[in-house]
Design a protein around this nucleic acid. Sequence first.
DNA 1: ATGCGGCAATGAAAATACTCATCGTTGAAG
DNA 2: CTTCAACGATGAGTATTTTCATTGCCGCAT
Lengths: 227, 227
Amino acid sequence: MKILIVEDEAKTGDYLRQGLSEAGFTTDLARNGMDGLHLALTGDHDLIILDVMLPGLDGWQVLETIRRSGKEMPVLFLTAKDQVEDRVKGLELGADDYLVKPFAFSELLARVRTILRRGRNGTEPTTLALADLELDLLRRRVTRSGKRIELTAKEFALLELLLRRHGEVLPRSLIASQVWDMNFDSDTNVIEVAVRRLRNKVDEPFEPKLIRTVRGMGYVLEEPEGD
Amino acid sequence: MKILIVEDEAKTGDYLRQGLSEAGFTTDLARNGMDGLHLALTGDHDLIILDVMLPGLDGWQVLETIRRSGKEMPVLFLTAKDQVEDRVKGLELGADDYLVKPFAFSELLARVRTILRRGRNGTEPTTLALADLELDLLRRRVTRSGKRIELTAKEFALLELLLRRHGEVLPRSLIASQVWDMNFDSDTNVIEVAVRRLRNKVDEPFEPKLIRTVRGMGYVLEEPEGD
DNA sequence: ATGCGGCAATGAAAATACTCATCGTTGAAG
DNA sequence: CTTCAACGATGAGTATTTTCATTGCCGCAT
């Protein structure tokens, strides 16, 4: 798998290149928009990682030109913090995913793998929902009944997991490994506490309650049975 | 590379097996000490991951028997939280590394790779030092001039990095990626703050000052030049 | 020498996450 | 029906980490 990185900031570029190489990808690195565009159009990359902030030709212009050329090539783009609207704009221009700087490398790798797995076609849903609860992956925002709910990173991760697999009872061990990258056995009750915090925000002020505890098993997110 | 996992707790075992398979290793899994020992002695594994707490034959007994049989095979063992002395005991019995539950899977993977890279021979140092500053990787303890210093996880990680590469100026980007798994550019000063906390504990009450700022470059841990 | 600009240091507050002790609920056993 | 034990919920306290605003320091240009 061959990945094109378009990133002007030297450190970031090298970091990405090295990390991706170690993960078994082949990489090309362009330091500006022009080179990036040229490489993208002439090369045979399976994915482009594209920084938005570039000297000269910026990320959007590159992306737009690639799309207009008819090249069907997945694009993951990198936006600076706070530039929330960039993400939306990027997605509209046909990016497949975005990542906000600063980001964890493991996160990038996960996205890259997801994109490559699904190939350049069906775009992943950018929003998850159940009943009146909605989670917008792009804006990292959650609403219920239209009301905005502020969540911390952990809360968001937990809710995202529950939502992605709603209807399924998720055992603690699974939650632990997904949300905490922790394996346990253990003698802590972080999960209970986290679920509680999430309930306070997401369920407590609303009806019906969507997070259900399954004794001895774990937690499910689902609409309650009408009985 | 073939890894033997000896773990009675089903979830943990499956978790390890799956994770390691995804990472490209072949695995065998034994649910108790006897089976584990048998597989270890008859198989051709490159590494054993051994839980200490096992029904019947416990981890130490397994380890001891393997060693007495003359099999030269690296062992990474898993101990429960708080059982600090286990780690020391385990190391004395010839384990190559240990990991405390609960642990992050990424951490396990890193250790596994380290062990396999160095092969079964020179054991990694279990302690790092510079001047009168010592860091005990096993007990996760730091002392300076013999005085015990309490560090948080991040502080420890940062100091460990500085010590492992003492004398080198470490750029922020490197520190960020190692200690925070973050790539940045960014507009945060977490690193400065973390360095400061570390200095307060490690340098402030002592002489000489070991953590030096290199303006525009990063930080070094070193003994000051006598000039 | 003076002022300026960029970088780093600092202190304090806010946000987040974790631990602990205690309480309540549930289901099974008697 | 009552008791008990296991499991989960809860609230509060604490630790840790991050953010923010401010200050200080250093080197360069004027």
